[in-house]
């Protein structure tokens, strides 16, 4: 069963993930152009982009635990999931810069330093940017696998930061982002609870 699933997955080309991953963006564009966004379209665009970025971040975090727990490998899609996350995160930040803050650079600068939720969001975004620009084979070769892997462990920091960024932006008890923070912590916990099979073998040997 597991082999069948993995065999099937091997035959799915990566571009299908990109295609599916850009569906939320297409829907958002559609809603924007057809007036389907409601009274405050700026907020809707900003929030939908941010939420979608978080969902792809969680999906990319889930790849390894899924492999270790269920033996199902989505490893070949992980880069696409990560880059999709960064695409949405970038558009989220861009919508904030342009539509929400209308390029009031001074106020934005002051706000980022002063507001915990903006500081967390921007830190998360900077970390994701570092991961995105190195998400290519040339970078892995150039950096060496060990250094590259260490750098990409920053996602363990970025993911909780992004969830906290959402939580702190709300006025009352944050049910939805609180739930996603728990999911992120659970996914990170699974990595500790079930270590890499490779490392385990090496220990035994």
């Amino acid at each position: 069963m597991r082999q069948q699933v993995n065999g099937l997955l091997r035959r799915v080309p990566v571009w299908t993930v990109w295609l599916a991953g850009l569906l939320p963006l297409t829907l958002l564009l559609w809603d924007t152009l057809t007036g389907g966004l409601g009274i405050d379209p700026v907020r809707d665009i900003e929030h939908r982009l941010g939420r979608t970025a978080l969902y792809f971040l969680i999906a990319s975090l889930a790849v390894t635990p899924l492999l270790r727990v269920a033996g199902v490998s989505l490893m070949k899609f992980r880069r696409a999931l990560g880059l999709l996350c960064f695409t949405y995160a970038g558009l989220h930040v861009l919508s904030w810069l342009s539509m929400d803050m209308s390029f009031l650079w001074a106020q934005m600068g002051r706000d980022i330093i002063k507001r915990p939720y903006l500081l967390l969001g921007m830190t998360g975004f900077a970390l994701l940017a570092a991961l995105a620009v190195t998400s290519n084979n040339a970078s892995i070769r150039h950096m060496g696998a060990g250094a590259w892997r260490r750098l990409h462990k920053l996602v363990y920091v970025a993911a909780p930061l992004v969830a906290l960024h959402w939580i702190l932006a709300l006025k009352t008890f944050p049910v939805t982002p609180g739930f996603w923070l728990l999911v992120i912590l659970a996914l990170l916990g699974l990595r500790v609870a079930i270590p890499r099979p490779l490392a385990r073998k090496r220990q035994i040997a």
């Binding site: 379209p41 700026v42 665009i45 706000d111 939720y117």
Partner: peptide, 22 residues
């Protein structure tokens, strides 16, 4: 006097469209 988590210096008028500004 800012809200501790966001600035109160400017506001966005609802109904201003996508690029209504602050």
């Amino acid at each position: 006097v800012d809200h501790p988590r966001w600035s109160q210096a400017t506001e966005r008028k609802i109904g201003g469209g996508l690029f209504g500004g602050r």
